[in-house]
C-alpha cells in the first residue's frame, strides 16, 4: 500500500514538534524583517543622501537567491570569529532578505501620505522623529498591513530552506524520517498539507483584516 495511516499517525507528533521550530523561525524572521524594513524606509526619507545606497542594497538583496544568502551568512560569520548556530544564521538571512521587500512596502505607504501632512509637520516645527512617530507612521502603516501579511506568508513558505543548513525544522525532520525509514510519501505529503492549511487559513485572515481596515479608513 502506498499510503500507510498507522505510519502517518506515528510520525505526526515528531512533525508537530518540528513545525513549532518552523513557526518560531517565521515569527522571529518576520519581526526582524518588519523592523529592519521600517528602519531602511525611514532612513531613506530622513537622510536623503542614503537613498541611492539603500536602493542599490535593496536591489542586491532582492535579486539574489535566499538560499545563497543563507549559506553566505552561515559560512562567512565564522571567518570573522563569530560562530552563529544554524538557526540564528538562517533566521538572520531570512529576516534581512524580507527586510528588503518590506522596506519597499513601507516606502509605498509613505509615498501615499498627502504632502500637506509633511508640510504641516514642518509648519508646526515638529522634529523629524516626532513627525514620523506621531504623524506619518500612524497613517502610513494601516493601509499596508495586508501587503505585509502577504510577505509573512511568503516568508513562512521559505522556512524549509533552513533545512539546507540542517536546522531541525519541518522539512529537515521529514527528510530525516524519509531517509531512516525509506518512506517519503507520508512525511513529505504531511509537510505539504501543513503548509497548504496554514496558507489557506492565513489568506482568509488577511482578507478579513483588509476588510476591517477598509471599513476603518472609510469612516
Amino acid at each position: 500500500m502506498i499510503w500507510d495511516w498507522a505510519f502517518a499517525f506515528e510520525i505526526l507528533p515528531v512533525l508537530a514538534r518540528a513545525a513549532i521550530v518552523s513557526i518560531e523561525a517565521t515569527l522571529i524572521g518576520f519581526a526582524l524583517a518588519a523592523s529592519l524594513g521600517l528602519v531602511l524606509a525611514v532612513v531613506r526619507i530622513a537622510v536623503p543622501w542614503t537613498g541611492w545606497t539603500i536602493s542599490v542594497l535593496v536591489e542586491l538583496i532582492r535579486s539574489t537567491p535566499l538560499l545563497i544568502q543563507i549559506f553566505f551568512l552561515y559560512f562567512v560569520f565564522p571567518k570573522f570569529g563569530v560562530v552563529l548556530d544554524a538557526f540564528t544564521a538562517g533566521v538572520l538571512a531570512i529576516g534581512i532578505h524580507y527586510a528588503a521587500y518590506c522596506s519597499e512596502v513601507y516606502r509605498a505607504g509613505f509615498d501615499n501620505i498627502h504632502r500637506g501632512q509633511w508640510e504641516a509637520s514642518i509648519a508646526l516645527n515638529l522634529s523629524s522623529w516626532t513627525t514620523f512617530r506621531d504623524i506619518i507612521i500612524p497613517q502610513a502603516i494601516p493601509p499596508i498591513v495586508p501587503a505585509l501579511g502577504n510577505y509573512l506568508v511568503a516568508l513562512f513558505k521559505e522556512t524549509p530552506l533552513l533545512s539546507a543548513i540542517a536546522v531541525m525544522e519541518l522539512m529537515q525532520t521529514a527528510k530525516i524520517i524519509g531517509s531512516d525509514t525509506f518512506r517519503y510519501t507520508e512525511p513529505m505529503t504531511l509537510v505539504g498539507l501543513f503548509f497548504l492549511a496554514m496558507s489557506l487559513v492565513s489568506a482568509v485572515l488577511i482578507r478579513s483584516l483588509e476588510r476591517l481596515l477598509n471599513r476603518r479608513t472609510m469612516r
Binding site: E158, T159, P160, T185, T189, G192, F195, S199
Partner: peptide
C-alpha cells in the same frame, strides 16, 4: 499554498514511490 522546496522534494522523493 505550499512552498517551492516542498514541491521539489515531493516530486523528487515521493513520485518514484
Amino acid at each position: 499554498g505550499t512552498s517551492a522546496l516542498v514541491q521539489l522534494f515531493w516530486l523528487f522523493f515521493v513520485l518514484p514511490q
